[in-house]
Nucleic acid binder design. Structure first.
Length: 152
DNA sequence: GCCAACGTTGGC
DNA sequence: GCCAACGTTGGC
């Protein structure tokens, strides 16, 4: 069982949007970075939990938790020329990009802001807080996961 | 294989 | 809107 953090811009897709989806389930598509792709494809397992992080938000921070309900499979939106995330390098025979399916698990009573996360000494080595880290999918250690839950 | 130019992310 | 930090592209 692994823990993760997944970023989304709430203007595009927020935790409330996920909560309001049929079955509270959605594809986590559109990841176009190889490091993040590898985690989606190879490491995320059914039943893993992930923080839903709101990026480019006011404020940015962790809004809640989702569960991985389907492991990595080809991101078919990369094959659709009319889609914003279309990538001609990806084909059905040789998919370049992968996605997982997630299900809404819970929304925190309040958002834990990036500022608060930075102020927690238990999180000082967290990937999210490292300078220049722009990955949209990150691994979270069990210790970090626990420390964040205690901040609610 | 190097690296400059360009594009993107995302905090502020 | 600015810009630092990265990732990608493509000429050589």
């Amino acid at each position: 069982m692994n823990y993760w953090l997944m970023k989304s811009e709430p203007n595009t897709f927020s935790i409330m949007d996920l909560k309001n989806r049929p079955n509270q389930t959605e594809h986590w598509d559109g990841v176009r970075n190889y490091q993040a792709r590898n985690m989606l494809r190879d490491q995320m397992k059914k039943g893993d939990l992930a923080f839903f992080y709101h990026s480019n938000a006011e404020p940015s921070g962790i809004a809640g938790i989702v569960k991985i309900i389907k492991e990595g499979y080809p991101d078919f939106k990369a094959w659709d020329p009319t889609d914003d995330h279309y990538d001609p390098k990806s084909t059905e025979e040789k998919p370049q990009w992968y996605m997982v399916d997630v299900k809404f698990e819970k929304q925190f009573k309040r958002l834990i802001s990036l500022t608060e996360l930075r102020e927690n000494p238990a999180l000082k080595n967290m990937t999210l807080l490292r300078k220049g880290n722009r990955l949209s999918i990150m691994s979270v250690s069990a210790e970090e996961w626990k420390a964040i839950l205690e901040m609610i």
